[in-house]
Structure formats: C-alpha cells, structure tokens
Design a protein around this nucleic acid. Structure first.
Lengths: 126, 126
DNA sequence: GACATATTGCAAGTCATTTGCAATAATGAG
DNA sequence: CTCATTATTGCAAATGACTTGCAATATGTC
C-alpha cells in the first residue's frame, strides 16, 4: 500500500555538500558550477525548495535578481555585511528584539519576518 | 551644434504620473497596466532607470523576484511594513543611526546602504 | 521650420526560475 | 534478494522580469 516519505538521494546529498562547502549565501549558479553537471540544474532548484520547506536553509536576497541559499546549521538568526567592492560576505549578529518591539508598538503590525542586509566596504576595501 | 539635455517626454510624464497615482512601492507590471499601452514596456524600464539615476525614485525589493519603485518626494528615508495577507504596504520611520553605528563598530565595515523591510500581518488581518 | 540628437517602439535576446512528462531510482513488502 | 510502488530526476520547453540593438520618431534649439 501507499507509503509516503522523503528519500535521501544523490542530488540531495550533493546540494547539501555544496552548501556546506561554500558556507555563505550561495547562488544556484555557484552550486551548479561547483557540482559540475553531476546533477541537473532543475534538481538543484527543487532540492533547495525542499530544504527551504524543511526549514534547513535560509533564502537570502542581496538584490542581484537572484536568490541565495544558506544552511541554517550553526548560528541562529543573523544578517550580512556585503562588500560592494570584493563581494565578500560576513555574518553579523545583532540585538533586534527592541527594534521589532518598537515597530510593532508604533504600527499595530504583527511582524513575522524581516529582511536586513548591509552593503558597503569591508575593512580591506575601504 | 550639439546640445545635451534631458527631454521632458510623454513616457516620462506618464511614468511619473503612475508613480504618483500609486504612491507606494510599485512594480513595472502595475505601472504598465495602469498606463494601458499608452507607452511601451521598455520605455517604462528605461524611464525608471533614469529616475533612479537622477535620484528621484527608490528601488525597493520585497523578495518577489521583481523590483518596485517609489517616488522619493515626501518623506525621507523610511522602511516598509508589508502585510502578507492583504498585500498592503505601510511606511515606517525609525531611528537607526545607533544600529548603523553599532554595526560599523562591531565589524570595521563601512556601511553605505542597507535593506530593511518587515513582513507580517497588518492590524486588520491579524 | 529645420536640424541635431535624445528618445521611443519593436523585436529579439538574456538570465533566473518553473513546469510537464516520461524515464529512473529509492524504499517497503514479501 | 526481488518486485512493486511511487517519489524523484533529467530534459526540453515555457515563463517572467528585464535588457539590448537599431531604425523610426519626437524634442528643444537656432
């Protein structure tokens, strides 16, 4: 009879491996060229969708017209510093409960999530 | 002889009018359907690029895979509250100099710009 | 009004992402 | 282990947002 389940397949192993390898917000194109045709592009997209639905990755937007994906493992919630010169991405943690509380009080809006990314120049590029 | 200048043309009037009409972050598709084929889609894109270069509009990303444009007129720098149920967008102003200062101190990174948008439920949809 | 050139419209192209579908492979049953 | 069930993949084609090339057009100037 019908059983349902999620299978541990080659594409899923490989995408996970690629995300671990980069350990920063990574685009589909980067994953694809790292995996060098070992799996199909479409499978990368589908696997990333699955990882997102399973809450194993964060989707990050830097406004480049494409999505970036980051494993949710280590650190909890954090944001990014993106160097506009060298492209380097660093994580930054910040205390934001006050900010969120202020926003909710000021607006009567229930905040469920937010985007916060910083763009500028890293120490080396300044 | 050669004179250089920016011309005040029909497409530019119309795009400005559309942005004024919506007075919230507006997508190219919305502008286009509001203007109902009075100008070409390409011209909308080009006009918005021009307005952006001239620092007359802000480009806003809500992570939908497309850009939104907002006239820079009235308020200065502000962020948005986007209702995930009804799609309504409200502006919110906040004191963020401290946050930026903290980030720069903590990271030695020079912050030039940032994205900050909130998603959740507006008062009516909660 | 005529000219120089900034600007437009159209068609085609690009890039990221999605979808349909037949072929394939992972897992539970026997 | 073998088979059957069905989740999953690969491929090709489609979609959506946006860009580009270029000839046709419109604007501001003299």
């Amino acid at each position: 009879m019908a059983k349902i389940g999620i299978r541990y397949t080659k594409p899923r192993k490989l995408v996970f491996e690629a995300l671990t390898h980069f350990s920063k917000p990574t685009s589909v194109a980067e994953i694809n060229s790292y995996l060098k045709n070992r799996i199909n592009l479409t499978s990368i997209y589908r696997t990333l969708d699955l990882l997102k639905k399973s809450d194993l990755v964060n989707v990050i937007l830097f406004g480049e017209g494409k999505k970036r994906y980051e494993l949710k493992d280590k650190d909890e919630h954090h944001h990014h510093l993106v160097c506009e010169n060298c492209g380097d991405v660093k994580d930054i943690e910040m205390q934001e409960t006050n900010m969120l509380k202020n926003v909710e009080e000021q607006s009567k809006f229930k905040v469920l999530k937010h985007n916060l990314e910083f763009f500028g120049l890293c120490q080396d590029c300044q």
